[in-house]
Design a protein around this nucleic acid. Structure first.
Lengths: 328, 328
DNA sequence: AACCGAATGGCAATCGGTTGCCATTAATTG
DNA sequence: CAATTAATGGCAACCGATTGCCATTCGGTT
């Protein structure tokens, strides 16, 4: 089933068929309908490759995540997938395995096969990022770089909420359990933490950096206890869940002896033990918005973007891992 | 950077450049090295579309999952992704939203843009499946259809293990909490359940079908209690975790009053409350194996496959959601 | 010296659409 | 009714590789 078959069947030229299908207004109604009917009849599906080759558009968007195992990204993938399908585009999923080099390399490799790319938690240096954005439509998630459009989840504000929450419960010694130092989000959260603490005349302790996995949680838990803090705010839920587990192993009561607040509200945060107080992030929405921005950008290439950055609000979801500070 | 640029730079014909890069033995060593050097120099990346158009190979594999939110598929995606990258192929992720029509439609649409496809938990009727397999390399996961190669996780054997486990703990009334009736795996598990029970002179109760989400777990929990069973084996962990939660809400002690055994050992099964006794499935491995089979098949098109189906073993992981049957 | 076959590399067709340009036709207007 | 303009659809040149086929070259044989 090629465009030529339809052309032969309907007695028009191939170019007319092409137009009838992709720019319907360029061809007379009756001709168009005849062609469309024939196409439907023959169950015609345009060849993506051929189309891409001549038009340059692939109707495919790549989503780069640093680690496909991290549940945080699943919401993102889902949201992106949904929105992309609605627009009839395909999703190329790429796992960069937390490596900036690999990220750069793979990006370079697929660059010609996609219309645009969504970079989730990119590890790339700013300069590289803007270079890439200059030659390929890019939307970043949770990473803000000048001249690159982005959707960022306002976790820093969430961190502020978390601090208010903990302080109101009587906590004075609160530690931040840091994630990977290469993470832009980590830095933003730590900054927010210090600011929020300072507003109460307190200073935040900091342990880490740690990897974002539950196993890193074990060592993070021990480090957290060493700070003497009565509460910890963690870089993300994966880490927090790992910490919870380690604390349970060590017989430390949560929240009796120490409170733990996570970040993101991933799958599992509501049913771990104890259920995790955490910053609920609109992850799926972030995926959808990122795609919308990208597609919107694609449609108006050349025009200057209306909005370069979208900030998505978070809120604190209080569960059972946080409670009043212990008396000393 | 096209092949023509390199040809111009090195003073050979485009065809020679093409050969030097894709079939190195077809061109003289010194020429080849000169070309390869030039390609590296110019940072040449072949245009996937153009290549696909003429050669028919896209170096892309699609993975169809019924629901990208389901943690079960996380592992699968991950495994597939890993193995594909190792082979330099790309991953097109497609969410079929649990609909056979959509699955069929999307499959048809991308058919020409991929070298092969992995169908995870396909909802397609057997006939359709074999038709597709006839015109496109296919590997199914957890679905066995004649003449279609597949990797299936031996959950039925796991169910047997679960029954042994529960019976040895004194349970006599055990119910199966069924998943979607369109699921091949569900049918296989239920069959295994009955067989295993029969071996002990017992008959299994059955409730469901239920959707595979935690919220379905609430209604499943109530239905499970109504059977009067002292233990339930569920279609999957998502359902089991939902049940656990509902039982906790109702103040039913697990495993004191009722034992719950899940299936798959997804992310979260080890830290829900109580930690779930479940059938640990090698999900990531399934993803890797599926890709290997597919790629292997691609390389030897035309030859008859050595092995059509791979059965992956599961084992029962005993945690705290199962225990001795209550005395009546 | 004449011959042969393997190795090498060029030519040109092909994959399946897209799109700029032009010719034709039909509609609009003074 | 002639003239101007708009709508329509065909022609053919791409897009960037791949690959069958053929011409040339060269080392080795007899």
């Amino acid at each position: 089933m090629t465009i030529a078959d339809i052309a032969a069947l309907t007695g028009v030229a191939a170019s007319t068929v092409s137009r009838a299908l992709s720019r319907p207004d360029r061809v007379n109604r009756v001709t168009r309908e005849r062609i469309q009917a024939a196409a439907r009849e023959l169950n015609y599906v345009p060849n993506t490759q051929a189309r891409a080759l001549s038009s340059g558009r692939t109707e495919t968007v790549a989503l780069l995540v640093s680690d496909a195992t991290n549940p945080f990204f699943f919401g993102l993938i889902r949201g992106a997938q949904q929105q992309l399908r609605a627009a009839g585009h395909a999703l190329l999923l790429i796992d960069t395995e937390d490596s900036a080099e690999l990220e750069n390399h793979l990006l370079h490799k697929v660059r010609r096969s996609i219309d645009g790319v969504i970079l989730a938690a990119s590890r790339l240096p700013e300069q590289t990022l803007s270079d890439i954005a200059a030659e390929l439509p890019v939307v970043t998630v949770n990473r803000n770089v000048p001249r690159v459009r982005s959707v960022v989840i306002d976790s820093p504000d969430g961190v502020r909420q978390a601090v208010e929450h903990l302080v109101s419960l009587g906590h004075r010694a609160i530690a931040y359990v840091a994630g990977p130092s290469s993470s832009w989000a980590d830095q933003a959260r730590w900054r927010a933490m210090r600011t929020a603490m300072a507003r109460h005349g307190l200073t935040a302790a900091r342990v880490g950096p740690f990897g974002v996995s539950r196993s890193s949680g074990s060592v993070a838990a021990d480090a957290l206890l060493n700070t003497g803090a009565t509460a910890g705010v963690t870089f993300n839920d994966l880490l927090a869940i790992g910490i919870l587990r380690r604390l349970a192993e060590r017989g430390v009561d949560v929240p009796g002896e120490i409170s733990v607040v996570g970040c993101d509200d991933i799958f599992g945060a509501d049913f771990c033990s104890p259920p995790l107080t955490t910053l609920t992030a609109p992850i799926e929405q972030a995926g959808r918005v990122a795609v919308s921005m990208l597609l919107d950008h694609l449609e108006h290439l050349g025009e200057t973007a209306s909005r370069q950055t979208v900030l998505l609000p978070t809120h604190l979801t209080i569960r059972q891992s946080s409670g009043p500070a212990p008396r000393r």
